[in-house]
Computed example of a mutant assay.
Amino acid sequence: MKKQLLAAGIIAFSISLPSKASAASFRSYVFGDSLSDIGKAFALTGQGIPPAPYFNGRFSNGPVWVEYLSPAFGAKQTNYAIGGANTGDTNTLIPGNPLKLPGLAQQVEEFTATNPKVDEDALYILWAGANDYLGGGQTNPGIPVGNITNAVTSLAKLGAKNFLVANLPDLGKLPGTINKDFSTGLSTLTAFHNTLLNSSLTTLSQQLGLKMIQLDVNDLFSQAIATKVFANTTEPCLNLAAKTICSNPNDYLFWDDIHPTNFHGDARILRF
Rank of each mutant, 00 (worst) to 15 (best):
S183T: 10
K161M: 08
L17E: 15
G185H: 04
G265A: 11
G48D: 06
K243Q: 11
S247A: 13
N115W: 12
A242G: 00
L204C: 08
N140R: 08
I245C: 02
V229W: 11
H193A: 00
P102K: 00
N61E: 00
I38C: 02
A160D: 15
W255A: 11
Q206D: 12
S183A: 15
V108E: 04
V30A: 10
I10Q: 10
L164Q: 08
T184Y: 12
G129N: 04
L253G: 14
S187C: 03
I269G: 01
F111K: 05
D170K: 02
I10P: 06
G209E: 11
F163N: 14
G83H: 04
V229P: 00
F263W: 15
L174G: 02
V108F: 06
P71I: 08
S199F: 07
K76E: 13
S60E: 03
A241C: 01
T227L: 10
I213D: 13
A267K: 13
V217G: 10
L6W: 13
L35I: 12
I213V: 11
T203D: 12
L35N: 06
G84W: 01
V30G: 01
W255L: 07
F31M: 04
L270G: 08
A8M: 05
G185S: 03
G74P: 11
F26D: 13
P71T: 12
V118A: 12
D33R: 05
C246G: 14
A122E: 11
A267G: 09
V108T: 14
R271C: 08
N250A: 10
L201F: 14
V30Y: 03
G136A: 09
P95S: 03
G88P: 01
A226F: 00
L168E: 05
G209Y: 07
R27T: 14
P236D: 02
A191N: 04
L17C: 15
L17K: 15
A242M: 00
A75F: 12
K117E: 14
G48N: 11
A241N: 04
T45I: 00
R58D: 08
D216T: 01
P71S: 11
S187N: 05
S200Q: 10
N167C: 11
Q47N: 13
Q106Y: 03
D170R: 01
K2S: 10
N198D: 12
S36Q: 02
S36Y: 06
L35M: 07
G57A: 07
T112W: 02
F26G: 06
L186V: 03
R268P: 13
G83Q: 07
G9S: 12
S22E: 07
G62I: 14
Q106T: 06
T90Y: 03
I225C: 01
K40S: 01
N131L: 05
T244E: 10
A8W: 10
T114E: 08
T139C: 04
N262I: 14
S205W: 12
E235T: 14
T177D: 01
V165I: 11
L99I: 01
T90W: 03
D170Y: 04
P71R: 15
N97V: 03
I178V: 11
H264M: 13
S16K: 15
N131K: 06
P175H: 10
L197G: 03
Y133L: 15
A226Q: 11
L253A: 15
S199E: 09
C237Q: 03
F163E: 09
N147L: 10
P50F: 02
S36D: 01
